[in-house]
Computed example of a mutant assay.
Amino acid sequence: MIRLAACQYAIEHLPTWPAYAAHLRELCTAAAGQGAQLLLLPEYAGLVLSAQLPAAECADLHASMAGIQALIPAWRALCEGLARELGVYLQPGSLPVLDADGQYRNRAWLFGPEGELGYQDKLIMTRFERETWGVHGGRQGLRSFDTALGRLGILICYDNEFPLLARTLAEQGVDLILAPSCTDTEAGYHRVRIGAQARALENQIAVLQAPTVGLAPWSPALDENTGRAGLFVPPDYGLPADGVVAQSAELCPAASQWLLAELDLAALKRVREQGQVFTRRDWPEQWGVV
């Protein structure tokens, strides 16, 4: 049994580095203090760093993305330090990173008690990212992360809506997919959530979703945010009949809230061996009937 924490992350205006660092420390300490072993923040949570830029840069979609690049090394060090200090695995959401090829990518790092474990880039970009913002898809494919809690994977927001991505992680032996998300409408939130639940069903794995919430008129990228945190599993023996282990009570709380939930990995594995259905095992059969 492992204890997970997914944050409904309210976008706040934190205009200085000390204010931001204190905010992130307080948030993570609160979850760890409730016994959470893994903490998940949402897609583009790191873009809150743009509040530290001059007002004109902060209000400009492209300038704000460029302006936070100088802050990313300190941000990574802060996240690594918190994971080590609190003895947790921390996926602090994602942020746009300027790569060596001159393109921006939506990147999510994973940190643990032993330090930085690596990162996963978002692979398939939304219309806003590719047509308006200029954020590009990752080129290094999907990777899994071996941790003391089990093998993890990360699918950022829209990537959860594509079955073959989760299937690739399942074939790598992943038991839990982390799904940081950022959606401005309720429909967008449900698209990701339905995708997350479908991926859990198809692969008989767990998916943990953490969304942004609230209004941020000071940020052209994070201006409106809607979503609930949730932990999803396949509906089967020993697991919830609707596949929902836990979900946030409110759609858009006024302040950041943690959803804490227990995940029984042994029960999840038993379903793959003794469940009512074997969707994970039977996946290849669909190619022979269509």
Rank of each mutant, 00 (worst) to 15 (best):
I205E: 11
I124N: 13
R270F: 11
I11A: 09
Q204L: 04
A170N: 04
A198P: 00
F278A: 07
E262T: 12
W218I: 02
M1T: 13
V245K: 11
V245P: 08
Q8K: 03
G115A: 00
L222I: 03
P234F: 07
L123H: 01
Y189W: 13
L90P: 01
P18T: 12
R143P: 01
A196V: 13
L40F: 08
D159V: 11
G195P: 07
P180S: 09
P217E: 06
E114Q: 14
Q276S: 13
V48H: 02
G102A: 05
P284R: 10
A229Q: 09
L142E: 05
L90H: 03
W109T: 04
E85Q: 15
Y158I: 10
G33H: 04
V289H: 12
A196I: 10
M125T: 14
L95G: 02
A179S: 15
P92F: 04
S50P: 03
A266Y: 08
Y44A: 15
Y104P: 07
A148F: 01
P96C: 08
G33V: 03
I11L: 14
A5H: 01
V192M: 11
L215K: 07
A36L: 00
Q34C: 03
P163I: 04
P54N: 09
G214E: 05
A10M: 01
S64F: 11
R167E: 15
T212W: 00
H23C: 11
C58T: 06
H136N: 14
A31R: 01
D242V: 08
A179G: 15
A63L: 09
T185H: 06
T183H: 03
T279K: 07
L14E: 01
G275M: 09
E202S: 06
G150C: 15
E85V: 04
A255D: 02
W133K: 11
Q204N: 07
F162K: 12
T16S: 14
T212K: 04
E116P: 08
G138K: 09
Y89L: 14
G188H: 07
A59D: 02
Q37E: 13
A19S: 11
H23W: 13
E57Y: 02
F128N: 05
A166V: 06
L24C: 08
E57I: 00
Q103T: 09
